[in-house]
């Protein structure tokens, strides 16, 4: 239901616009303020002024190499690597699994689907310790394997659920026609369903990028040598080591870490909101 008010007078609409703009600005103000503050000298950060009196980029250049063992460039590369592999992994399993659930007949289908739904709500803490022990036994601690490999075996059931919902919306006539033409299930998947699920695949990619880019807990648990650090770990360590004295540099690096999030948002905003709306994914 879209409320259209044909009789709404111009001024009520004006009031609404004004309210939405002011309220939106109030909400986004901290982020805007942080972005401007990253160009201020340390002494100005706690002044009540929004804009820097004179702009400087030294917070960025100093912050870039603020940690002794690793610079932010390397951490960016590490974060991008982990996110990239996680996206591939999520696409791989969510697409295969969802095709089976949406189109194929197999025993215990209902039970398995119920299990899939339950795993979406399962608190991660319950499996955390044994998973850690497994990765420890495999000698995977302090590598990127625990942060990437699980995505290839369906670590995020949300993505599978989203793709199932999407494939269920594709008319079955197409598969039936292909079946009559002699296509087997793999051909139907590869030639018919996969190209048609592109919007769902895009949504899965965006969310798995966000989740692994913003992930902190997994990286905190599994990575411990500074040369392996990601952006999130780097920022946290920066805060721990120099903490309250280097807010400017910390803001500068924080702003940099948010730029990829913002760019992806600008380009894929429609996919994002649709993904949330259809399956309740959280941003």
């Amino acid at each position: 239901m879209m409320m259209a008010y044909p009789h709404t007078r111009r001024w009520t609409r004006g009031v609404l616009h004004l309210f939405l703009i002011l309220f939106g600005l109030l909400m986004l103000y901290p982020i805007i303020w942080m972005a401007f503050s990253s160009f201020k000298p340390e002494s100005e950060i706690f002044s009540s002024q929004l804009l820097p009196t004179h702009w400087m980029i030294s917070q960025y250049t100093k912050g870039w190499s603020a940690l002794p063992e690793i610079n932010f460039g390397t951490m960016f590369r590490n974060s991008i690597f982990i996110s990239f592999i996680s996206v591939i992994g999520s696409l791989f399993t969510s697409s295969l699994t969802s095709f089976a659930f949406a189109r194929l007949k197999f025993p215990f289908k209902k039970t398995l689907f119920a299990i899939l739904m339950v795993t979406m709500m399962l608190p991660a803490q319950v499996t955390l310790i044994p998973q850690y022990i497994i990765f420890h036994k495999l000698n995977w601690i302090n590598t990127y394997y625990p942060l990437t490999i699980p995505s290839f075996i369906g670590a995020s059931p949300f993505f599978t659920f989203l793709s199932i919902q999407f494939i269920r919306g594709i008319p079955k006539d197409l598969d039936e026609a292909a079946k009559i033409d002699g296509c087997n299930m793999f051909q139907i998947y590869w030639r018919i369903i996969l190209p048609l699920t592109k919007p769902a695949l895009v949504t899965v990619s965006i969310f798995s990028f966000y989740w692994s880019w913003n992930d902190f807990f997994g990286q905190l648990v599994y990575l411990n040598s500074p040369s392996k650090y990601t952006i999130a770990l780097g920022l946290q360590n920066f805060l721990d080591q120099q903490g309250q004295s280097q807010w400017g540099q910390m803001f500068a690096m924080s702003v940099l870490s948010l730029i990829p999030v913002f760019i992806v948002f600008l380009f894929f905003q429609k996919h994002l909101t649709r993904g949330i709306a259809t399956s309740g994914l959280k941003g």
Partner: peptide, 19 residues
């Protein structure tokens, strides 16, 4: 809609916690 959604998108990150 997009603007009101931004905090939710960034809120889980370390950067926002620092802020």
């Amino acid at each position: 809609r997009a603007a009101y959604y931004i905090p939710s998108l960034m809120g889980g990150s370390i950067a926002i916690s620092i802020m």
